[in-house]
Design a protein around this nucleic acid. Sequence first.
DNA 1: GTCACCCTTTCCGGCATGGAAAGTGACGGG
DNA 2: CCCGTCACTTTCCATGCCGGAAAGGGTGAC
Lengths: 98, 98
Amino acid sequence: MTTVQPRFDAVVHAPPRLQICGLLAAVDWMEFPSVRDAVGVSDSVLSKHVKQLEEAGYVVLRKATVASRQRTSLALTTAGRTAFAGHVAELRRITQGL
Amino acid sequence: MTTVQPRFDAVVHAPPRLQICGLLAAVDWMEFPSVRDAVGVSDSVLSKHVKQLEEAGYVVLRKATVASRQRTSLALTTAGRTAFAGHVAELRRITQGL
DNA sequence: GTCACCCTTTCCGGCATGGAAAGTGACGGG
DNA sequence: CCCGTCACTTTCCATGCCGGAAAGGGTGAC
């Protein structure tokens, strides 16, 4: 089927995480600092939210050492994309009265 | 201008309140029991969320006695419609990567 | 006066959140 | 080798929101 089941997801709904998912949905990988700046939160706050997404199985981390520097990148898993798509579908359903 | 400024609104974002706004956006007035059932919460919980929307100036209550029964109806104010539209625009912006 | 109907408010325990600060692991330099 | 830095992680802490349960009005019917 091509349609996504609308499904409210509290893990995805929280503002910072909704933004994180939105950013990651548009790309394959995004680096930690880029996400942090785009979302506008501190390292610790981003780290904590990413951890929750990770524990939900929605995000994976890839840690690489590039040019002697740590570079942590984030990506949505298939489950993460599904959950995000479902949540967005639900948001659209809820807000369709607009 | 016809476009709405995307503007995240925490008061509107909370799940129960997003639903309430979504319902009210589609109509002029809706009765308390109908909203309560549609949102799927108890009287007290709905009352508390409506109060928050009211204090934000987004919702107004109209209390009428019809056929000897209290009938409280809810409606979005102009500010409420603006806030909801702005929030939905922001949600669309955030989720555009989908 | 008493009761029922409709919300409101209070009480309460629990979970989430963000800022600050301490902690960790991997290098590169001295 | 030890030290300092970088790039996150984790801990600590204080605050706030949330929902369920129960007690509270207010109004009209009996």
